[in-house]
Design a protein around this nucleic acid. Structure first.
Lengths: 122, 122
DNA sequence: GAAACTGATTACCTATTGGTAACTAATCCT
DNA sequence: AGGATTAGTTACCAATAGGTAATCAGTTTC
């Protein structure tokens, strides 16, 4: 009799795995957390503001990631008829739900760094 | 006077951004969360067990990700002198700290899916 | 003696990610 | 007229991620 998977075949595990896959896909890439984090601090920001706040991002990437997140309904894009035209980006309710996730990630990163530091001391 | 970044230049923000960057780097890739999640369920697993439990992963990827995480001290690798040789992988204390992060991610993915579903109903 | 199981490694290939640099069109300021 | 600001787009390129398939060496089972 061939050995086979056990624990990860339960319905519970399967839907959990699926949920993680979903989350990773939607929040994938180098910049999404930084953009979302910046929008969490300001609630309405224009393209050039984001470009200035997020160090190192190129307009191409910012544009692409914003489109991505608009499609996934994490942010809204509003064209305002000023001269020259301005565009406002803001989080949706769904977008705001990433806040605890970002906190957790930042917290983990910080704790991890401390762990390594203490180990080196020992 | 040129406009410049404001909020993301504070020391607080900078270290937060750094922590997120760290976490993303260490936990990057398609498979790490799945491997860690599986190890959270079993605490000691052999290579072939992981290969069987994690659907779709190739031995090459499993091997590479395990090495990666061993280097970052999230897991331990123990060779056991049975015949044929077996190798046990287990989470370290640091590795176990990803548990709440995985929960948060899975929770977010699930909630996100429900949000979309409800919107389609409306 | 042949096949299968152990834990991998290697070569090869493709697709995605992400970066650089230049450019656009409209409008405003000097 | 010249330059800056708005919000992007385009072409091009390099590096990385990740997949497939084959192979290895030792041991055990049929």
């Amino acid at each position: 009799m061939k050995k086979q998977a056990v624990c990860n075949t339960t319905t519970q595990c399967q839907s959990r795995i699926l949920a993680i896959k979903d989350a990773m896909e939607i929040l994938s890439g180098k910049w999404k957390f930084h953009i979302l984090g910046t929008l969490l601090l300001n609630d309405k920001m224009r393209f050039m503001d984001l470009l200035r706040e997020i160090e190192g991002i190129a307009p191409k990437m910012l544009s692409k990631e914003l489109q991505d997140m608009e499609m996934n309904q994490l942010i809204t894009r509003t064209v305002i008829d000023t001269k020259p035209i301005t565009v406002e980006y803001a989080l949706t309710a769904a977008g705001r739900t990433v806040s605890p996730l970002i906190d957790e990630l930042a917290g983990w990163g910080t704790a991890y760094r401390h762990t390594l530091y203490n180990k080196k001391d020992a």
